[in-house]
Simulated scan of single mutants.
Amino acid sequence: MQITRQRPETQQGAAENFTGTVWLDELAAPPAPSRLRMFNVHFAPGAHTAWHRHPHGQVLHVLQGEGLVQRRGAAVERIRAGDTVWIEPGEWHWHGAGPRTFMTHLAVVEATGDGMTTEWDTHVAAVDRPA
């Protein structure tokens, strides 16, 4: 058993992967053979990810606020504190805060053998986001 009492400093989401203000706290990245990665992600109102996908899928659990999630080709879905979202492996999607609310979620992914967790694509067009 290992208890981590000090974690890496909070990192701001990179502009090439996020729109708006986003902060990430890496909560877990156990040593091999585990490939688990867990992040606490804080989105300011209207902030969201670019389109992306995960080779082994992703679990999002909303801790506070309200947000939005969309898979490519489907309608935007509202998510709220207490909701858990399973995103299938390889499914293109984006997620983030609602237009007038903050949103915080846990994001859990499994890395590939070479450590990759996410493939990033283009930013979400403003026309595709609800106002």
Results as ranks from 00 to 15, higher is better:
Val62Asn: 02
Arg80Val: 15
Gln58Ser: 00
Gln70His: 02
Leu63His: 07
Gln64Phe: 02
Ala74Cys: 12
Leu63Thr: 08
Ala81Trp: 06
Val76Asn: 09
Gly57Met: 02
Arg78Asn: 09
Val59Arg: 13
Arg53Asn: 13
Gly73Phe: 12
Trp86Tyr: 10
His52Asp: 11
Arg80Gly: 12
Ala75Lys: 07
Val62Gln: 00
Leu68Gln: 15
Arg80Met: 09
Trp86Cys: 05
Gln70Pro: 07
Ala74Asp: 14
Ile79Asp: 00
Glu77Val: 14
His54Val: 09
His52Asn: 13
His54Ile: 07
Asp83Tyr: 02
His61Gly: 01
Gln64Tyr: 08
Ile87Ala: 01
His54Gln: 08
Ile79Cys: 05
Trp86Asp: 04
His54Glu: 08
Arg53Lys: 11
Ala75Ser: 14
Val85Asp: 03
Val69Gly: 02
His61Thr: 15
Leu63Asp: 01
Val69Trp: 10
Val59Tyr: 02
Leu60Ala: 06
His52Leu: 12
Leu68Glu: 14
His52Ile: 13
Gly57Glu: 02
Ala75Glu: 15
Val59Glu: 08
Val85Cys: 04
Leu68His: 14
Gln58Ile: 06
Asp83His: 15
Glu66His: 09
Val62Ala: 03
Leu68Phe: 12
Leu68Tyr: 13
Ala74Gln: 14
His61Asn: 06
Gly57Arg: 05
Gln70Ser: 05
Arg72Thr: 04
Val76Met: 09
Ala81Gln: 04
Arg78Ala: 15
Gln70Gly: 03
Asp83Arg: 05
Val85Ser: 00
Leu60His: 00
Leu60Gln: 02
His54Cys: 07
Ala81Ser: 13
Arg78Phe: 01
Leu68Pro: 05
Leu63Val: 13
Val76Ala: 12
Trp86Ser: 07
Val76Lys: 11
Leu60Thr: 00
His61Trp: 04
Trp86Lys: 08
Val85Glu: 05
Glu66Gly: 12
Arg53His: 11
Trp86Val: 11
Asp83Gln: 02
His52Thr: 09
Leu63Tyr: 00
Pro55Ala: 09
Gln70Val: 08
Arg71His: 03
Leu60Val: 00
Gly57Leu: 04
His61Ala: 11
Gly57Lys: 04
Gln70Ala: 08
Trp86Glu: 10
Gln64His: 14
Arg72Lys: 08
Gly73Asp: 15
Thr84Met: 10
Ala81Asn: 03
Trp86His: 09
Ala75Gly: 14
Val76Leu: 08
Arg71Phe: 03
Leu68Met: 15
Val62His: 01
Trp86Thr: 06
Gln70Ile: 05
Gly73Glu: 12
Arg78His: 12
His56Pro: 02
Glu77Gly: 05
Gly57Ile: 05
Ile79Val: 15
Arg78Tyr: 06
His61Leu: 09
Ala81Glu: 05
Arg78Ile: 04
Gly65Trp: 06
His56Ile: 01
Gly67Phe: 06
Arg53Glu: 11
Val62Phe: 02
Arg80Pro: 00
Leu63Pro: 00
His56Asn: 15
Arg78Ser: 12
Gly82Tyr: 02
Arg72Asn: 07
Gln70Thr: 03
Gln64Val: 08
Gln58Trp: 06
His52Gln: 14
His61Val: 09
Leu68Trp: 15
Gly82Phe: 04
Val59Asn: 01
Val59Met: 10
Gln58Thr: 03
Val69Cys: 09
Leu60Ser: 03
Gly65Leu: 02
Val59Gly: 00
Val59Thr: 14
Arg72Tyr: 07
Ala74Trp: 03
Thr84Glu: 07
Glu66Ala: 13
Thr84Asn: 00
Val76Asp: 10
Leu63Arg: 06
Ile79Thr: 05
